[in-house]
Design a protein around this nucleic acid. Structure first.
Lengths: 342, 342
DNA sequence: TTGTAGGCGTTATCAC
DNA sequence: GTGATAACGCCTACAA
């Protein structure tokens, strides 16, 4: 447990072990072709000196370094959806001996490019969470890329369309005919996920022969405060919806808030379905009926995919997880009490 | 918006501008002492070529690189407490033109050291979130370090002792005499924060002349599932507590679950106070009375502190935020309805 | 099986 | 003001 801030280099270890730098390097990288004796001697020298490779130097000298590093680019860390996803990824990565370096998406273009350069040179692979179109192009094929919640060459996704369909159908089956939607879309970037969920919503209504008044589809932007504001508008419509399908749990919670503020009881006066099944969905008042994404598993799958890619092992290109409906207390037939399964 | 994955180096820019590499380097680093004319010419060349510095190379050649990078070491990303803290830090860092590179604490010692080396060489400063003793020693004084929720040379903290005291006093003032505590402690690492909160709890009971049966202080380990299990035990005691002060909101939510499972109504049969005031605390059923930490501000303060340190500007060594009680629906006098402020 | 030379992209140093 | 040269620590390629 001695801490020598002085940097130990390959040369130091080599001197200590009485070999050349290259031999030490080869031992470190588990290269074959050297006597077991030498290998041991070097190992000991490494332990004694407390040597650790300098990833920067390694990155500089070899084009495709093995730094045990996976870079992650993600918006907003305090989005529960992201946190749970990354938790899964981190678990799997660590089990495989890989570090996760997480960067939040920079607004500043210079920062963005610096960060990309850093990852391109340093990381074994990159995990993109809900990336913008530009984020993709930055990496080209300089390093393996897996996309979580978006499109790309290698992706991990939930079946958003079916999820949207299931949520809406659940409301229809309960007897609702006026079903609104808080879409995930915002103006800047048309997110694929949001579009698919909305398509599922439309399809379910269409299959049931129900109309979709334009005013019933609002942009919730995946955000709690926006959803709250928009829900107020919906509920004060001349003919307000009796049920809302929110594109994610956060906006469902916003809707919950708006309902409470306007004195509408959930689910008696208004049914609400979310999407994601984040941790918080189970403890809201009332507990949220929602479409479950297996977030942790999805994160794990993404990490696994990336690990295979970095090792040039064969893998699937696209992993799609099923969306399942979790019925809790926020949905009921219009004008009635909740019917909950235990 | 052209994407040339081919790496542009200083030499390329130098050739383009008709100057030497050093001049380009000097322009990039805003070094004084060159004609405005040259500076402009180089600037243009940089734009034309799309040059971006290679942080790895920079790290290698200079002992104290300015990479616009703050490294963060944190346990568990899906801890809401952490997510909200880091969100704050990230906001401030980005506004100052700094990238945040977030690493989750590795269990593997080799990974841990590699990661530390990476940060030591690459980062301008390091932010440690609830660090273990060892994590501190890794960095020595090779790079500025700020600690969030722990001790060290530069720290940002909430007043945990007073927080614990406030929470407990609130329960006592409501008339509770049998007040239990779900401590944050686990066996491995005695966290300073947890100890302080518990000390506040003890002091409040002592000041009120109330006893603290050993059986009333249990290890909730800051975790929802552990807290749920332990609360079940507490509630089935011959003389169960009528109120519980949980060391964080997550364990308070666990307690909420246990109460529901055992058919105890909150707050009529059992009052619960949490700690942190994470986002979810406001939407639980019932909404959680809790001790608020200004998490986002704390993250911002930590980032600001670090930024000053990296610039060798004078700063406070320790920033302490006050803890405030937020009364919601999970507390009431024993055997009575909640008395909520709107 | 082991060692030597050279270069990765940048900055420090010191001449010009 | 500007530029050549030598590191920084490691790996690739090749030689012994």
């Amino acid at each position: 447990m001695t801490d020598l801030p002085a940097t130990v280099t390959l040369a130091d270890v080599a001197r200590e072990a009485g070999v050349s730098k290259m031999t030490v390097s080869n031992v470190i990288n588990n290269k074959p072709g050297m006597s077991e004796d030498t290998r041991q001697r070097v190992r000991h020298a490494i332990d004694r000196t407390g040597y650790v490779v300098n990833p920067a130097a390694r990155a500089l000298s070899s084009k495709r370094p093995r730094n045990n590093l996976i870079g992650v680019l993600t918006p907003q860390l305090n989005w529960p959806w992201v946190a749970e996803l990354l938790h899964g990824a981190s678990t799997t990565a660590e089990a495989a001996g890989l570090n996760l370096a997480i960067f939040t998406t920079a607004s500043n273009p210079t920062l963005e490019r610096e960060r990309a350069t850093l990852l391109r040179t340093l990381a074994d692979g990159v995990l993109l969470v809900i990336p913008s179109a530009e984020e993709h192009s930055i990496f080209g094929d300089s390093v393996p890329v897996v996309t979580l919640g978006g499109h790309g060459q290698h992706t991990v996704q939930v079946d958003n369309y079916t999820g949207g369909y299931l949520a809406t159908k659940h409301l229809i089956d309960l007897g609702h005919t006026r079903v609104a939607h808080l879409a995930g879309q915002n103006d800047d970037t048309p997110l694929r996920d949001a579009t698919d969920r909305q398509a599922g919503y439309h399809a379910a209504l269409l299959d049931a022969g129900l109309p979709v008044p334009d005013a019933y589809v609002q942009k919730g932007e995946y955000a709690e405060d926006v959803a709250e504001r928009v829900t107020r508008t919906l509920l004060t419509l001349p003919e307000p919806p009796t049920a809302i399908f929110a594109a994610n749990d956060l906006s469902a919670i916003g809707a919950l808030r708006a309902a409470a503020a306007l004195g509408r009881r959930v689910p008696q006066d208004l049914s609400i379905v979310g999407f994601d099944d984040i941790h918080a969905a189970a403890v809201t008042d009332p507990p949220l009926t929602t479409v479950r994404q297996p977030l942790e598993e999805m994160g794990q799958a993404a990490a696994r995919l990336l690990i295979h890619l970095t090792r040039n092992e064969p893998t699937d290109s696209h992993v799609r997880f099923p969306a399942t409906l979790v019925v809790r207390g926020s949905t009921a037939p219009p004008g009635q009490e909740a019917h909950m399964d235990p």
